[in-house]
Simulated scan of single mutants.
Amino acid sequence: MIAPFAAREAFLDWLANERRASPETVEAYGRDIADLLGFLSRHQGGEPDLAALRLADLRAFLAHRAGEGIAATSRARQLSAIKTFLRFLARRHGLPPLPLGGLTGPRRRPPVPRALTEAQALTATTDSFEESPAMAARNRALFTLLYGCGLRISEALSLDMRDAPRAGTGLRVMGKGGKERVVPVLPAVETAVAEWLRHRGHAGPGEPLFTGAKGGRLDPGVAQRALRDLRRATGLPEHATPHALRHSFATHLLGGGADLRAIQELLGHASLSTTQRYTAVDAAGLLETWQKAHPRAG
């Protein structure tokens, strides 16, 4: 029988000295294995027999941790630590290997999108930190397009001159998986793009709508850095990114009473469940408003 707590110490020594894991990882994995061994001691009524360990025991441990309110991310890390520990014991101590591939961790919920306020979105689409008037006009046009039409940055940068948005005319966008959609264009979007095109000068219909300093198609990294510089200069929050403008488009539409199915079509989401994440954003905004305004909130 393998002494469980001696096995834990040997495992942590291997992690630190052979795997060169960081002290933080060694400490975290040590806590995770100690939690498991403590649970097994109570579960089996004595010193745990690792050689007799079953997948059912591990599932019971994970269910126990979930019942204690441990976050999914922490339980996923614990499962990773346990799998590494058991594989170590199988290789170094002859422990019968378990079919660990059949043991799956908790599903991680996608993060709730963080939208900008309407005032912050206005700052992101009207201010500029560029010395060049042309680059300033380009950035304003791009960010206004992202917020005004809900485009992904890749979709906006793939547009050509023939696609220049015009108010009253739907903008055809090629989204993920080659799925095409048509989104309406606000006058503010047309105005911002027209201002950029005055700086861009004449170009053929197949040339890129948004270009970099050297004339080629604008790289998304350049656009991301431009908004990063702008948020640092204007005090916008750290989550003010090109994709946050798309989030804000959806969140502000939802807050204004738009139908969720319509927002799904405008965003080009294949599944309504993806669009439904925005309801959590709006609910959070409603709660914040209630807490600030309701006389009994305090």
Rank of each mutant, 00 (worst) to 15 (best):
F5D: 15
A6T: 12
A7H: 11
R8W: 13
R8C: 06
R8K: 12
E9H: 00
E9K: 00
E9N: 09
E9T: 00
A10H: 11
F11G: 04
D13I: 01
W14Y: 14
W14L: 06
W14T: 02
L15M: 14
L15I: 13
L15F: 04
N17R: 10
N17V: 00
E18C: 02
E18N: 06
R19L: 09
R20T: 00
R20K: 11
A21L: 09
A21F: 10
S22H: 11
P23A: 00
P23N: 01
P23G: 00
E24R: 01
V26M: 08
E27Q: 13
A28V: 03
A28W: 03
A28I: 00
A28P: 03
A28M: 03
Y29S: 03
Y29L: 08
Y29D: 02
G30N: 04
G30M: 02
D32G: 12
I33L: 15
A34I: 06
A34W: 05
D35K: 07
L37K: 07
L37T: 06
L37W: 05
F39Q: 01
L40A: 00
S41N: 08
S41R: 15
R42S: 05
Q44L: 14
Q44R: 15
Q44K: 15
G45S: 12
G46M: 03
E47G: 11
E47T: 13
E47K: 13
L50V: 07
A51T: 14
A52N: 06
A52F: 08
L55E: 11
D57Y: 03
D57H: 09
D57E: 09
D57K: 01
L58Y: 03
R59N: 05
A60P: 07
A60C: 08
A60T: 09
F61E: 08
F61D: 03
L62T: 05
L62G: 08
H64S: 09
H64C: 02
R65W: 00
G67Q: 07
E68H: 06
E68F: 01
E68A: 14
E68Q: 14
G69Y: 08
I70P: 01
I70M: 15
A72Y: 12
A72I: 07
T73R: 15
T73S: 14
S74Y: 12
A76T: 07
Q78H: 12
Q78S: 15
L79G: 03
L79H: 06
S80A: 15
I82S: 07
K83E: 10
K83H: 10
T84C: 07
T84I: 11
F85V: 10
L86P: 06
F88H: 13
L89D: 10
A90Y: 10
L95D: 12
P96A: 13
P96S: 06
P97C: 09
